[in-house]
Simulated scan of single mutants.
Amino acid sequence: MSDCGSRAVSVIAFIGSVFSPWYRWSGRRSPDNHVCINVATYGPGGRFTMTDRGRAALHQTENSFTVGPSALHWDGARLRIDIDEVSAPPVISRVRGSITVTPRAVTGVELPLTPDGAHVWRPFAPSSDITVDLHAPGWQWSGHGYFDANFGTRALEEDFSFWTWGRYPSGKGATCFYDATRLDGSTLATAIRFDANGQAAIDPAPPPLTPMRRSMWAVRRETRADPGFRPRQVKAMLEAPFYSRSMVETQIDGQRTVGVHEALDLRRFRSPLLKPMLAVRVPRRAGWSFDR
């Protein structure tokens, strides 16, 4: 998020693009044949890019991850993301430039999301500084961000029906909430507080889950907040029939804070009717050559 709160970016690097209809239609047999660097910009002139590419476009080293024309590079202190993508309809255009993510601290935390560890959340850097330098007017700014990852050996919709996640900066670091309902009826309810040095502590008595107004597509939303405080969206980011990402204001321990919130309805995502709709926003480009 920019310091002024008017702009934001998100970048997700996939091996096995979990929201790609092409990966689903393939039977999910070859994750490395469905790779993507998804870039979305929020604010004036915002764009969305999510191109599903084949294994020829994937190149990895210990400190780099490349998918076609875009790449992530880790130098031991910061993550540089070089972007050269084409946005999806309705506005088709180039999205080029770079984003640098500098963690304030790197954690050693891993959170299993299911008892058997088939899904794991890894918050590498819940508090980071970001610098954005894209080739578009107004898209040169700095702000506050984070760097995390999810790993899984099964499709999300095989184990979950609904989840919400939120990361809220605080004066001492950041607080993350992960709440989910699994298909077997069990739940995940985790609150983790990270200090300025990246040290993590699970909150044994987190603020209560509090409902928010539903998204534009009527996706249910909730996050945690002090009793009596009603969280609210301050900026819409990504809206889909099964997913919502937004900037949300909540209150934790008497302190108001604005962070990124996500809600994911996997019952809706399981619908086969959604896949052709997603294919319009997630084009498949199987061929690639690094020699060109």
Rank of each mutant, 00 (worst) to 15 (best):
C4P: 08
G5Y: 07
S6V: 12
R7G: 04
A8M: 14
V9I: 15
P21I: 06
S26V: 01
G27Q: 07
R28E: 11
R29Y: 07
N33S: 14
I37M: 07
N38G: 05
V39S: 02
T41Q: 08
T41A: 03
T49E: 02
M50D: 06
M50K: 10
G54Y: 07
G54K: 11
R55G: 11
L58P: 01
T61P: 03
E62T: 12
N63F: 09
L72I: 05
H73E: 13
W74N: 01
D75G: 00
G76I: 01
I81K: 06
I83N: 00
V86E: 02
P89R: 01
P90L: 04
I92Y: 05
V95H: 01
V95K: 00
S98Q: 13
T100Y: 00
V101M: 03
T107W: 08
G108A: 12
T114E: 03
F124E: 12
A125Q: 09
D129A: 12
I130C: 07
V132G: 00
L134R: 01
W141A: 01
W141T: 09
S142K: 14
H144S: 13
G145Q: 03
Y146R: 11
D148V: 07
F151E: 12
A155E: 14
L156V: 12
E157I: 08
E158W: 10
D159W: 10
F160A: 08
S161A: 15
K172P: 04
A174N: 11
D179V: 09
A180V: 05
T181A: 12
T181V: 14
R182M: 06
R182L: 08
D184M: 00
G185L: 05
S186W: 08
L188E: 15
A191H: 11
A191D: 13
A201N: 10
D203H: 01
P204D: 04
P207D: 10
L209F: 04
R213V: 14
M216T: 14
A218T: 12
V219S: 01
R221W: 02
E222Y: 12
E222I: 07
T223H: 04
A225H: 00
D226Y: 08
D226H: 00
P227M: 05
P227F: 00
P231K: 06
R232G: 05
M237R: 09
M237L: 14
E239N: 13
P241W: 04
S246A: 15
V248Q: 03
V248I: 08
I252R: 04
H261Q: 13
E262R: 03
L264G: 10
L266K: 11
R267D: 13
R267K: 13
R268W: 09
R270D: 15
R270Y: 09
P272K: 12
L274C: 00
M277L: 15
L278N: 04
A286F: 07
S289I: 06
D291P: 04
R292I: 11
